[in-house]
């Protein structure tokens, strides 16, 4: 049905499809259209998503819904302190009848991986996941195995719960393109939530709007979104400001800059535009940079500094 129409790759059509996808997902995750769209943007940009929120606000449902609607395989992995790398990537097991080792694929061999409470695992386990995220492949006993495409990790962590956890170091936070917080639902959305049936069971009634191949095409199409020189000037001005502003411990890395531009391109595409405007950059910037920056003064929330950053840099 709708899948075939994606092949007519006009950006406006992409915008329509995304709108439809968000509308569908909005039936499951109430009152989170903007975050849904951002999560989709992250998916289209080919980046990974970090959800930082309290338990029970719908992180898992969001991941499920995205996977379902995109027509992707879904795996969930609960991180615990005794989780081993092999539990993530899999292991080789000797097959007696065939006298050969056979790869037992771990949960990472999927298209959408929900890594729940990623900060509960030891750094060893974390780094196994992060390697997979970065390289799009895993090494098991000296052999590399490519991961399926697309490969999209949604990691969650609980910011309040700090006892017995291993917070992700900045270098690893950098691997996530975006960080989102869902927050509590709005009263009207919550009302509907309370009144309606279970969201997970509703999920089964949805038909996928995309498929893996279409998503890969979309990801390729992100590169064709036009970025004009003045916009590059703007992005550079933002990066430069973050590096010169004394309120940050350190400025944004070039990787952060590339991620910002890619996210802005994907956001433009998701909105059905073939070019990036400064507003795209402004929209995605807080999601892309907040987890990569640290305030010198711990009492000041980074999000406030990021808002100030956006207000301080003039659009050239």
């Amino acid at each position: 049905m709708a899948i075939s129409s994606f092949k007519a790759k006009s950006t406006a059509a992409v915008g329509d499809q995304i709108t439809r996808l968000v509308a569908q997902a909005g039936q499951i995750i109430l009152g989170q259209d903007e975050n849904l769209k951002l999560a989709l943007t992250c998916l289209v940009a080919g980046g990974h998503l970090l959800l930082e929120d309290l338990p029970g606000v719908g992180k898992t449902t969001l991941a499920h819904t995205l996977a379902r609607l995109s027509g992707l395989e879904f795996q969930r992995l609960q991180f615990t302190s005794d989780l081993l790398p092999a539990d993530i990537v899999g292991t080789s097991i000797y097959h007696r009848e065939r006298h050969a080792f056979e790869l037992h694929q771990g949960p990472v061999f999927t298209q959408v991986l929900l890594a729940d409470e990623v900060n509960r695992a030891t750094p060893r386990a974390q780094s196994a996941l992060l390697e997979a995220m970065e390289e799009q492949q895993v090494s098991i006993e000296g052999k590399t195995h490519p991961l399926p495409r697309p490969f999209f990790v949604i990691a969650t962590q609980n910011p309040r719960d700090q006892i017995g956890t291993y917070p992700l170091p900045e270098s690893q936070l950098d691997r996530f393109l975006m960080r989102l917080s869902l927050g509590y639902p709005a009263p009207s959305a919550e009302r509907e939530l309370l009144r309606g049936q279970d969201r997970r069971s509703l999920l089964a009634t949805l038909d996928p709007v995309l498929d893996a191949a279409t998503l890969c095409q979309l990801q390729a199409q992100v590169d064709t979104v036009h970025v004009a020189e003045p916009l590059l000037d703007y992005v550079q001005a933002l990066l430069k400001y973050s590096r010169h502003d004394v309120e940050f411990v350190q400025g944004l890395s070039p990787r952060a800059g590339m991620g910002l531009l890619r996210a802005a391109r994907a956001w433009a595409l998701v909105n059905g535009r073939g070019h990036v405007v400064p507003e795209d950059v402004q929209r995605v910037l807080p999601k892309v940079v907040t987890h990569r920056l640290q305030a010198l003064d711990l009492a000041v929330p980074v999000s406030r500094l990021v808002t100030r950053l956006l207000e301080a840099v003039a659009i050239p």
């Binding site: 405007v277 400064p278 507003e279 402004q282 956006l310 207000e311 301080a312 840099v313 003039a314 659009i315």
Partner: peptide, 9 residues
Amino acid sequence: RAPHEGPVA
């Protein structure tokens, strides 16, 4: 127009 305000906004 604020300096940081984009044309669309």
